[in-house]
Simulated assay, not measured.
Amino acid sequence: MTDVNAPHDSSDSRHPEHAPADHPRVSPRKVGVVVANLGTPDATDYWSMRRYLNEFLSDKRVVDYPDWKWQPLLQLIILSRRPFSSGEAYRGIWNTEKNESPLLTITRDQTRKLADGLEALYGDQVVVDFCMRYGNPSTDSVLRRMQAQGCDRILFFPLYPQYASPTTATANDQAFRTLMKLKWQPAFRTVPAYFDEPAYLDALAASVEEGYAAAETPPEVLVASYHGVPKRYLMEGDPYHCQCQKTTRLLKERLGWRDEAIVTAFQSKFGPEEWVGPATVEHVAELARRGHKHIAVVSPAFSADCVETLEEIEEEIKESFLAAGGERFTYIPCLNDRDDHIAALLAVIRRELSGWC
């Protein structure tokens, strides 16, 4: 895998045969695979958080209100306050050893394992790297570096099992913006949603079974908590809500469970609109009021643990359940760099590289 902090080594580039003496040197042809995740601030201080949140919340895929209505509110009110609370949340989960967010650490680890797997399959024909939609390493810098390394075909893989406009689509948008600026565009493919891939479901089910086996007593209900979206998105044709519901159903079938053993909920509501529901933070409290003393929560929409899982679920949502009378709360980590998860991602990549490798 390319070191994302290292400059490109052009020692393998060469002068094209039969070309004029002043022709630029070119690198041997390769295939690039880029995995993309949401993003991360560079640090937890006010200005680092403000830069990150400004980029994130100015994205029309995330908040699609008109600029005249949204930007004054964002710049004058939200970004004067939210960087403090968001910074505090990130400080609670920050990887202090590497001075970076867990999402960055985990995505790098995933990419290294994917690179090892693809090298075993294709040798040095495939270059593997990762980028973030917001923050660093930027999509633009990674795609340009890949092209400089000779990648004339690039497979772009947003690490979101379910498709959504504010995740998959905006990651693709950012990649396309770079392509629009290149003199010589590489051939380009994007990976579709993979929530119903058998290997992914097997890995997800295995993580749940392991989480239940490790608990002192089995949880009474599993809450599959997905990041929420405004209900309007569903009405306008975004398939995310439906794909989340199907993910829960397929997971339940994989586990061989009865219907009432697993429920679907949505977290991270933002703004005044009606969002798809039920809201996780409210639903876990309702489960406690119904007499459930032990629940587990899993996050099938996240490929890597991040602030929404390590802080929101493990603190806010857990506290909501315990405050309503619950007694035991089990969080089942994201699939992260588990070997079965990496194997599932490799299976998707191999299929999408068909005809290229």
Rank of each mutant, 00 (worst) to 15 (best):
M1E: 07
D9H: 11
S11W: 03
D12F: 08
H15I: 11
P20H: 09
P20A: 12
P24M: 01
N37W: 05
N37L: 10
T44P: 00
M49R: 02
M49A: 02
R50Y: 01
R50P: 02
L57G: 05
S58H: 06
P66H: 03
W68Q: 08
Q75F: 12
R82N: 08
R91Q: 10
I93C: 00
W94K: 06
N99W: 10
N99P: 04
L103W: 08
I106F: 01
T107Q: 00
R108D: 07
D109S: 14
D109H: 13
Q110P: 14
A115E: 14
L121F: 02
Y122K: 05
F130I: 01
M132G: 03
R133Q: 12
D140K: 03
D140L: 00
V142R: 10
F157M: 09
Q162I: 02
S165T: 15
P166T: 06
A175N: 02
F176T: 09
T178C: 00
T190R: 08
P192K: 13
E197I: 06
P198K: 09
L201W: 01
S207A: 14
A214F: 09
L222H: 10
V223R: 03
V223S: 03
S225I: 05
L234M: 08
M235F: 02
G237W: 00
D238Y: 04
P239K: 07
Q245T: 04
R249K: 12
R249H: 10
G256C: 11
E260I: 11
V263I: 15
T264Y: 06
A265R: 13
F270W: 10
G271I: 03
P272D: 04
E282Y: 05
R289T: 09
G291A: 07
A296Y: 06
T309S: 11
E311I: 02
I313F: 06
K318D: 13
S320F: 06
F321I: 11
D339R: 11
D340P: 13
A343E: 11
L346R: 01
W356I: 14
C357P: 09
